[in-house]
């Protein structure tokens, strides 16, 4: 195939840069929660809690508490600081609905 894609990639780049992003697409963040918090977390032996059965409010509060160091944990405070409060709220809302 060689480098025939150069021109079209450049055109594509300019097309995409003018395309508006969705405001907050919670899926893009929330999918990454499932790397660890899968349904196999329901396994009673697992130390990682399942997110099922938690309400949007509970999830949002937990995420904000991790972010602002009100809830101690080994990993989640490091991750929650990577997102705005609005993003965390959107993720909580999304995760509560499945």
């Amino acid at each position: 195939m060689k480098r025939i894609g150069y021109v079209s990639a450049a055109l594509l780049a300019s097309a995409l840069s003018s395309m508006a992003y969705a405001e907050i697409d919670a899926r893009a963040i929330a999918f990454n929660c499932w790397n660890c918090h899968t349904e196999s977390s329901l396994d009673a032996k697992s130390s990682i809690p399942s997110l099922k059965s938690l309400s949007a409010q509970q999830l949002r509060q937990a995420l904000l508490d991790f972010k602002y160091d009100k809830k101690p944990a080994t990993l989640m405070p490091r991750l929650a600081k990577g997102y705005s409060d609005a993003e965390l709220a959107a993720v909580a809302e999304y995760l509560s609905r499945y």
């Binding site: 499932w34 790397n35 660890c36 918090h37 899968t38 349904e39 196999s40 977390s41 396994d43 697992s46 130390s47 990682i48 080994t74 990993l75």
Partner: peptide, 15 residues
């Protein structure tokens, strides 16, 4: 974290 190491492995496989 040793416990999480094993749990994350299992869950990453499941995901």
């Amino acid at each position: 974290e040793a416990d999480y190491t094993r749990a994350v492995y299992r869950n990453l496989i499941a995901d």
